[in-house]
Computed example of a mutant assay.
Amino acid sequence: MDPAPRHDSAAPDASTEQVLPPAPPSIHVRAAITWLAIFPLVAIGMMAAAPLMESWHPIFRAMTLTLVVVPTAVYLVLPRLFAVYGFLAKRRSTRLKLATMRPLAEAKEVAHG
């Protein structure tokens, strides 16, 4: 059984605009953000683990380093970097929207004034 349609007494005003979320980052932006997360972790990990793993075979060094770096990047660093990117993208789209609305408002004032 379908629920009864909901009728809100306060219909949205014609001047109210729906704010759309910014588009997801392009594949190039995602690649750059991923590199920004991985490179410092690998560099720090290599320097920190070098004394311990100096005598290890390079394959085991790489395996051990990636066992630490990949989960750290995926679960800790990348979500924070993408959140920062989302914040900046939202702020940029809001600024662009305001910048395009300002000349329209000024034109209306000139036409009415």
Results as ranks from 00 to 15, higher is better:
residue 1 M to R: 13
residue 1 M to P: 12
residue 2 D to K: 15
residue 2 D to Y: 10
residue 3 P to T: 04
residue 3 P to H: 05
residue 3 P to W: 05
residue 5 P to N: 01
residue 7 H to K: 11
residue 8 D to S: 07
residue 8 D to P: 03
residue 8 D to Y: 12
residue 9 S to D: 14
residue 9 S to P: 10
residue 9 S to V: 15
residue 10 A to P: 00
residue 11 A to M: 08
residue 14 A to Q: 03
residue 15 S to A: 14
residue 15 S to P: 00
residue 15 S to R: 15
residue 18 Q to E: 13
residue 19 V to C: 05
residue 19 V to T: 08
residue 20 L to C: 02
residue 23 A to D: 05
residue 23 A to C: 03
residue 25 P to N: 00
residue 26 S to P: 01
residue 27 I to L: 15
residue 29 V to C: 02
residue 32 A to Q: 12
residue 32 A to N: 04
residue 33 I to R: 03
residue 33 I to P: 02
residue 34 T to R: 14
residue 34 T to Q: 08
residue 34 T to I: 08
residue 35 W to Y: 11
residue 35 W to I: 02
residue 35 W to R: 10
residue 37 A to W: 02
residue 38 I to E: 01
residue 39 F to H: 13
residue 40 P to R: 01
residue 40 P to M: 04
residue 42 V to T: 11
residue 43 A to I: 04
residue 43 A to W: 09
residue 45 G to V: 00
residue 45 G to H: 00
residue 46 M to R: 09
residue 48 A to G: 09
residue 49 A to D: 01
residue 50 A to L: 11
residue 51 P to Y: 01
residue 52 L to P: 05
residue 54 E to R: 11
residue 58 P to R: 05
residue 59 I to W: 13
residue 59 I to P: 00
residue 60 F to K: 05
residue 61 R to W: 00
residue 62 A to M: 07
residue 62 A to D: 02
residue 62 A to Y: 03
residue 63 M to V: 15
residue 64 T to C: 14
residue 65 L to R: 03
residue 65 L to Y: 03
residue 65 L to Q: 04
residue 65 L to V: 06
residue 66 T to N: 08
residue 69 V to L: 04
residue 70 V to E: 00
residue 70 V to I: 06
residue 70 V to T: 09
residue 71 P to K: 02
residue 74 V to K: 14
residue 74 V to H: 07
residue 74 V to Q: 15
residue 75 Y to A: 12
residue 75 Y to T: 09
residue 76 L to H: 05
residue 76 L to A: 13
residue 76 L to M: 14
residue 77 V to A: 05
residue 78 L to I: 12
residue 79 P to F: 04
residue 79 P to K: 04
residue 80 R to L: 12
residue 82 F to A: 08
residue 84 V to M: 14
residue 84 V to T: 11
residue 85 Y to M: 01
residue 85 Y to T: 02
residue 86 G to H: 06
residue 88 L to M: 13
residue 91 R to Y: 08
residue 92 R to T: 07
residue 92 R to L: 09
residue 94 T to V: 11
residue 94 T to H: 12
residue 94 T to G: 06
residue 94 T to Q: 15
residue 95 R to D: 07
residue 95 R to V: 01
residue 95 R to L: 12
residue 97 K to V: 03
residue 98 L to E: 14
residue 100 T to S: 13
residue 100 T to D: 11
residue 102 R to Q: 09
residue 103 P to E: 09
residue 104 L to K: 09
residue 105 A to P: 00
residue 108 K to A: 13
residue 108 K to V: 14
residue 109 E to S: 07
residue 110 V to E: 12
residue 111 A to N: 04
residue 111 A to Q: 06
residue 111 A to I: 06
residue 111 A to D: 08
residue 113 G to D: 10
residue 113 G to W: 07
residue 113 G to T: 05
